[in-house]
């Protein structure tokens, strides 16, 4: 976390940690409840990922203190995210390519 904090500031942070804890528990219950709905894989995946992203953001922002972290840490994370997206793009392009090959074989 950036900078030194007074004891009063730490106490305020502790209150925030407890609120975040409550929010994470509530979102976990929402995740399980939503999974009971009979929806197809596409929407189900999107809903699950959106809730997981919100929970992940809460952990990263408050428990990992990213909300007040220095720019250099952000750059490290952004570069990791960029490489991750490149890797996902490679996987998706391979998947699309596979489907096109299957389609061509079907037509032939």
């Amino acid at each position: 976390m950036a900078g030194e904090m007074t004891i009063e500031e730490v106490k305020k942070h502790v209150r925030v940690y407890l609120y975040v804890f409550g929010a994470l528990l509530a979102l976990t219950l929402v995740t399980v409840a939503v999974s009971r709905f009979d929806v197809s894989i596409g929407p189900a995946l999107v809903i699950a990922l959106v809730i997981a992203l919100v929970k992940g953001a809460l952990v990263a922002m408050y428990f990992m203190h990213l909300i007040s972290e220095k720019q250099v840490i952000m750059w490290v994370l952004l570069s990791a995210a960029a490489f991750l997206l490149c890797m996902f793009a490679l996987f998706i392009s391979a998947l699309v390519d596979q489907e096109q090959v299957a389609l061509l074989m079907h037509v032939a």
């Binding site: 995740t31 699950a48 997981a52 992940g56 428990f63 990992m64």
Partner: peptide, 25 residues
């Protein structure tokens, strides 16, 4: 302790994504 905590929160973060992806969807 802060550094050990960052690692621990990351382990929590990974589970937050693993749980719905593997068990629920």
């Amino acid at each position: 302790i802060e550094v050990a905590g960052l690692y621990w929160h990351f382990v929590d973060l990974v589970w937050i994504f693993l749980f719905p992806m593997i068990y629920l969807v």
